[in-house]
Amino acid sequence: MTRSALRTGRMLQVAGASAAALLTLSACSSATGSDKGSSPGKPSGTVTVFAAASLEESFKTLGKRFEKEHPGTKVTFNFGGSDTLAASITSGAPADVFAAASTKTMATVTDQQDAAGTPATFVRNRLEIATPPGNPDRISTLKDLTKPGLKVVLCDKTVPCGAAARKALDAGGLKLTPVSYEQDVKSALTKVELKEADAAVVYQTDVRAAGDKVAGVNFPESAQAVNDYPIALLKNAPNPKAAKAFIALVRSAEGHKVLSRAGFLKP
């Protein structure tokens, strides 16, 4: 083989490798496309659910039930701060269902005409104070959180749990300076679980889900800041049929049983 032939051969190899890379990329995107539940009748394929971080445990349970009830389906979840999820949906993230922790974050999606139909409130959630096990700082009221030297974490005000916490604090006429505004409710709770923070204002459901890793303290001001959780089918849903079936399961008596076991309140 001559030198130049060798060189061309190498170049072709490189070109081939890049072409292969591109093919792999496009194969990825066509794989999601083939998941569309196009056949009439039973729901099939993948349902992509964007849900508030606080829904994680109950929705995972419901997802497993859904897959069992409808063989051939798969539910994939993206849990996070409702505001983050809403922002990614309005910028075109491929999701079928959005379950938010507040009507305000759902409005971000409906304002952009990204939801199909009107969102329905399926549960409500109340705030609670989470403390390390045994409540070492003897926190009994929301006012106790304003004690100097206490490390309290709140959710950021853009996240529903942060907005609700602010509402509750305002209702009690309290001023609280936290050590951190966390980006979602789970990271606020984690700071307490790791005992880095002395307390966090989170949802009742999070305290219950954390089991004995945290202790919960109820406070009356939380009644002023109960969050409605709306759920909606998205306009650009790749798999609307299965998505509708999943929403139906969430709103069914069976769905409510799972959700109320997690501590959610009836709408």
Binding site: V153, D156, P178, V179, S180, Y181, E182, Q183, S187, K191
Partner: peptide, 9 residues
């Protein structure tokens, strides 16, 4: 940073 030091303006 956000994991270790949190987020406070």
């Amino acid at each position: 940073t956000i994991t270790f030091a949190g987020n406070f303006p």
